[in-house]
Design a protein around this nucleic acid. Structure first.
Length: 319
RNA sequence: CGCGGGAUAGAGCAGUUGGCAGCUCGCCAGGCCCAUAACCUGGAGGUCACCGGUUCGAAUCCGGUUCCCGCAA
């Protein structure tokens, strides 16, 4: 492709994860973003007001046409003539769009549909890739730029960027890291591919792993598990759905915890107790020191603050 | 107007037949001690979210407002 030409691009994305990528593309003069696709406005939070997706806000701010079809393959839902509205594009970049892209659309761009995925594929195909890397205690993860095909996250890899995980990494912090490093390499990767300077590498299917979408129940703590496992679960479930348990009839979220260095053999599993001004809960193996917790209807508080105001609840068991 | 919880000292919480504003912690001063996050003594710190009503008297009862949070989506 000639230097003076720009890459005519459609961007599809919805969640915050896609924001750095869209910014990256918008800030790169080699790209011309002609349209943005994102999910329809939905009510979020306690009010029933419709909320625009983060991507929609960014697109509007930059004066780019926004499409929000309920179903991306149902052209009639967003185009009056039952056709995809823009047929002459070079690439479609999809990041965290929340819908499967059908073959009819994969075939539209001149070069390819390109995806940014939050793991080092073929590891962790699926939507909860970042949670999975923390839950499994990985030392490194990263972002993958790949060509899309009809299956989920199975396309040929163009380029990857790695990052280390800190011992206290949470899904929230890793989410930011990976979305950024992915965005950082996205423009040049797409450009190099379009220019013919990248040879797509098929994934090694023998090394694949697939992760299911995170659901609320994944945040529920099983206190018979090891403190080591629960501590990773707490970091993996930050900030949604959060690691939670039941204190009497109320939900108790565990926002931050450390693995206790001491053992407390006399305590029962799931028992809440205090020792040296620290709040602990006994696990199946080992003990967790609760640093930051939140009771349903209340704000997040430190373990020591909970002890000060709720001495009567010490000794009870979490469920 | 989706369902529900909450607002009281710097923090976390008690506090209804309406009657002097409390607890734990922190903070300040002093004491004990080889020493301490331990212990003892004393102290400061409140417009009980806001506005109005009932009452001799309201944190408490009634009406309204604002803000925070959990669920759901």
């Amino acid at each position: 492709m000639k230097n003076k030409q720009t890459i005519k691009t459609i961007f599809m994305g919805t969640a915050d994860f896609a924001i750095p990528s869209l910014k990256s593309i918008l800030n790169d003069s080699r790209f011309d973003v002609v349209a943005v696709f994102t999910q329809p406005d939905k009510p979020i939070g306690r009010s029933s007001k419709l909320q625009e997706t983060p991507i929609k806000k960014l697109a509007i701010k930059n004066g780019i046409p926004v499409y929000q079809p309920e179903n991306i393959s149902d052209f009639s839902s967003y185009s009056s003539n039952n056709k995809f509205p823009i047929l002459d594009v070079d690439v479609i970049i999809v990041v965290s769009y929340a819908q499967i892209i059908p073959k009819t659309i994969l075939d539209i761009p001149k070069y390819a549909c390109i995806n940014v995925h939050g793991s080092l594929l073929p590891k962790y195909r699926g939507s909860s890739c970042i949670q999975a890397s923390i839950l499994n205690g990985d030392n490194e993860s990263g972002a993958t730029i790949m060509l899309m095909d009809e299956k989920m996250d199975t396309g040929d890899v163009l380029r990857q960027a790695k990052t280390d995980l800190s011992p206290k990494e949470t899904t929230a912090s890793l989410f930011n890291k990976i979305s950024q490093i992915g965005a950082d390499i996205l423009p040049s990767t797409v450009f190099d591919f379009v220019s013919g300077n990248i040879k797509p590498e098929p994934q090694d299917n023998s090394k694949k792993s697939i992760v299911k979408k995170t659901i609320k129940e994944n945040g529920r703590i099983d206190w018979s598990m090891s403190a080591n496992h629960i501590e990773k679960q707490i970091r993996a479930m930050t900030t949604w759905p959060g690691a939670w348990t039941k204190l009497d009839a109320k939900i108790l979220k565990i926002l931050e915890a450390d693995i206790a260095s001491e053992e407390f053999p006399k305590k029962n599993i799931a028992e809440l107790f205090t020792e040296n001004k620290n709040l602990y809960v006994k696990c199946g193996k080992g003990t967790l020191l609760l640093k930051l917790i939140q009771i349903e209807g209340k704000k997040a508080i430190k373990g020591v603050d909970f002890i000060n105001g709720n001495k009567n609840l010490l000794g009870t068991s979490l469920k």
